[in-house]
């Protein structure tokens, strides 16, 4: 369902061109669980942003569920992000003035889902994340692990096909980090395609498929063959 062909991404820095992605070709079937590792500056985040339609490749083709996205209008790309893609960030990015429940509901607000439906879906999601009793708390009243769980709830509330996590445990302690990874894996088990960027080898090793990046290239791409 994800097909990258010869994708490149150049950044202009002053007079120089920085090539953050160089000739990246990658196919990710639905329901895959993929980790992206590599040294700092190797292009992991750039790859994730391209996958999440937050960034456009300078060259190459990116088809998502058969749709060529590189030529789409901004409005259509936003709609795809809304309906098909969920993001989890290292810094959580919760809106500080909104409660946990309201943060989770935000994508549905943007999508124009009516309030009654929003309510029931938020309730469901919070329950599945074990956050029901934190629903009315604002982010500054939550622990780091709880915040990231709220952020995950927000990422999946629209039932996306693709979940992109950029160092989701980077700001968490060991224990909360493991909880968050377990939660993401559980969601993957329910069918969502999961891509995790991480510096943590122990987390990276858990993925069925492990991509290593180096200088904007895909350096290695290992696949477990044991089916789950």
């Amino acid at each position: 369902m994800i097909e990258l062909e010869h994708v490149e991404r150049d950044f202009e820095v002053g007079d120089e061109m920085v090539r953050a992605l160089a000739d990246v070709s990658l196919q990710i079937p639905p329901g895959d669980y993929l980790s992206v590792m590599g040294p700092s500056g190797s292009g992991k985040s750039t790859l994730l942003n391209v996958l999440g339609l937050l960034d456009r490749p300078s060259r190459g083709s990116y088809r998502l569920e058969g749709v060529e996205t590189t030529t789409l209008e901004e409005e259509a790309r936003a709609a795809l992000r809304r309906q098909r893609i969920g993001f989890v960030f290292q810094a959580f990015h919760l809106v500080p003035r909104l409660t946990a429940a309201e943060n989770v509901a935000l994508p549905m607000v943007l999508a124009g889902v009516p309030p009654t439906e929003r309510e029931s879906r938020v309730r469901e999601v919070l329950e599945s994340l074990d956050l029901t009793d934190r629903a009315q708390h604002r982010p500054d009243q939550l622990s780091g692990g709880q915040r990231q769980r709220v952020a995950i709830g927000r990422a999946i509330v629209m039932h996306p096909a693709l979940l992109l996590a950029d160092e989701p445990t980077g700001n968490l302690d060991q224990h909360s980090g493991q909880e968050v990874i377990a939660l993401l894996e559980q969601l993957n088990g329910e069918g969502i395609t999961l891509v995790i960027v991480t510096h943590d080898a122990s987390i990276g090793q858990r993925a069925r498929r492990r991509v290593r990046m180096l200088d904007g290239h895909i350096h290695s791409d290992e696949q477990d063959h044991a089916p789950t």
């Binding site: 999440g52 937050l54 901004e74 409005e75 936003a78 709609a79 795809l80 992000r81 809304r82 309906q83 893609i85 993001f87 810094a91 990015h93 809106v95 935000l106 994508p107 943007l110 999508a111 927000r154 629209m158």
Partner: peptide, 16 residues
């Protein structure tokens, strides 16, 4: 700024 970035990541369009 980061809230605006978030809104866009969550599927908010420029118009929104």
């Amino acid at each position: 700024v980061s809230e605006i970035g978030l809104l866009k990541a969550l599927g908010g369009s420029e118009r929104q």
